[in-house]
Design a protein around this nucleic acid. Sequence first.
RNA 1: GGGAGCGUAGCUCAGCCUGGCAGAGCACCGCGCUGUGGACGCGGGGGUCGCGGGUUCAAGUCCCGUCGCUCCUCCCA
Length: 421
Amino acid sequence: MRVESVRGMRDILPEEARLWQALEAEIRSLVELYGYREIRPPLVELAELFSRGVGEATDIVHKEMYVFPDKKGQMLALRPEATASVVRAYIEHGLYAKGDLAKLYYIGPMFRYEKPQKGRQRQFHQYGVEALGSLDPALDAEVIDLAWHLMERVGLSREALVLRLNSIGCREDRPAYREALRSYFSARKDELCSDCQRRLEENPLRILDCKEPQCQSAIAGAPQSLDYLCEGCRKHLEELRGMLGDLGLAYELDPRLVRGIDYYTRTVFELCSRELGAQDALLGGGRYDDLVELLGGPPTPGVGFAGGMERLVLVLSQHRPANTASPALDVYVIPIGEEARKRALAILAQMRRKGVAADLDYMGRSLRKMMSVAARQARYALFLGPDELAQDRLTLKNLASGESRTLPRSEFLAHPQRFLS
RNA sequence: GGGAGCGUAGCUCAGCCUGGCAGAGCACCGCGCUGUGGACGCGGGGGUCGCGGGUUCAAGUCCCGUCGCUCCUCCCA
């Protein structure tokens, strides 16, 4: 019986992996430009980290998280997101003790047990940044600027994107707002879908996010978090809006944006593609001023965002038509005859040690076929046959121009790059 | 979790309605042409028709189940 991959887990094959590598390189270089440094937390954490950090009542934790006992019976989880892990590491290693802003970024796989579809796998990949230690709205603005910059850098135009922004207040404002929502929706309970009736008890904020048509009219008239902000939160949002204006970053204030993770406070935002269907959010994030304390660290505010690699790859492949791969090799070695074949290996090894990307046929192909492969994969063909062996020379052919020249073996191998313009 | 569509060669797909030899194009390999190319010509290898069961003399085709993919919903990145 053939063993196949697990549902929702897919292979990224070499052709696609090139695009991933390029994207990852762009992300790394850009976030490092903003002062972020990489952190690589483990993929496995105590399940408790996420139930406390992300929230027991969220779909992510109670429906979608991979949870399993280890041999000692501890409940472990595959990380469904990375912010909680980064904050755990921040606390565990005392990064706050440096008394400075900690700017951290990550790229890696996350796991959620969802129904797979295009742009949404059970093992998926996110990149993200977290800035811990400052309450300054300028930091929110910088993080949002970074998000925009990143999308532009990878080739998306501003017109193809929309930034949605909201403030959901701090822990002082939340109870009053939550109560307002609960009493508002309680009066309209029979208009709500069954999920929202459950949310009414667990987390009424989430109702605002519901897309069920039957809930829309009730949602339309619901109290808005913006009306329940304390003076500090209101000021924070106003300053942020002013800074976004100064930065020339357009946004839509969306009072119904709440997001599916409990740790957010104040600023929440999403950067969405206008060209994707139902799964249009390319990245999302916000402020989480209580999370460090909630996980046992000193009171420390934070702000960050996470973006999905799969979705980015999807949008980009619509924009950048599969660029015909230019030859990956510098030289393809073509031996003629048995003796030459034996000698070819050592010549290959020497070229590679000089930094030349070179390869050889191991499939026993005919001369003609080797030429055909060389033409496709390399810029030069290097012939080694009885004539060359007799004179201790090599024949180098430029496959683009068709010109070839024969060179003393030792001269070529001493500085192969000189002959490979 | 709910709804719909689709699974046939490495890839894109035809064949299914109306049961009767498993096909095309591309890719791959060989030969023409082991001392030089992606063109051309000729030839060739490749398939548990997703999997399991049922109906039938006969199933890729009809029926049931199942798994997977895609889309909507949901969730979010």
